[in-house]
Design a protein around this nucleic acid. Sequence first.
DNA 1: TTGACGCATGCTCATATGGGCATATGATTC
DNA 2: GAATCATATGCCCATATGAGCATGCGTCAA
Lengths: 113, 113
Amino acid sequence: MARAATTSDVFNAIAEPQRREILVLLRAGERPVTGLAREMGMTQPQASKHLRVLREVGLVRERRAGKQHLYGLDARGLRPVHEWAGGFERFWNESFDRLDAYVQGLKQERQEE
Amino acid sequence: MARAATTSDVFNAIAEPQRREILVLLRAGERPVTGLAREMGMTQPQASKHLRVLREVGLVRERRAGKQHLYGLDARGLRPVHEWAGGFERFWNESFDRLDAYVQGLKQERQEE
DNA sequence: TTGACGCATGCTCATATGGGCATATGATTC
DNA sequence: GAATCATATGCCCATATGAGCATGCGTCAA
């Protein structure tokens, strides 16, 4: 295997910069594929493919409006990402000026548990 | 191109489940490669490779202790991830009952989901 | 110095991409 | 039904993996 499919894991789906950008754009409201493609500066097939990935992991929703397929944000899937990263909050607040201090800090925490 | 290198982007580096698990383990304190490999149930080369990726994006730090290379967490790089996902907080808090109302027109097509 | 230990690398393989392009599918209008 | 617009898919290519295995390299003890 090479890697878990992007379509099965939110973390993998948002590993693509353009897909993250699409999600950001969709915060302003739903859009048709072509509109998104234009704003992103990509081809329609490319936009469709990225949207498919996002749809399969549940980060976007599709709504049919005549000939158009409007895509809207469904950010609930990003909550686990936020929480996972948040689990490291106390660590990125530590002082990394000195490696010694860093190591000491970890050793202390280790003993406390 | 296939995808941005895992070694150049934190989002991509943490797209790998095992690397996320390594980071979680390192919250309890630094460890030598072999120790980590054992805890993760993977081979030493695999552990080294994952650690290299994490090191190149700056999520872990290496410290030499005799024959051993101790790896410790440097979670500062996870802060952007936390903040990025946090930018969607108001959206996942939205009532999706209302959102479904806003998607009123497609009730007919959505019956299978 | 000679080993042994702890890691990092290089190699090959199979697979999952993302981009570009052509084309199939669906819906709308004439 | 035909023409057309809006999307979704299928294909091919080049590249980036992750796994498994062998091996190179630095460190330390005898």
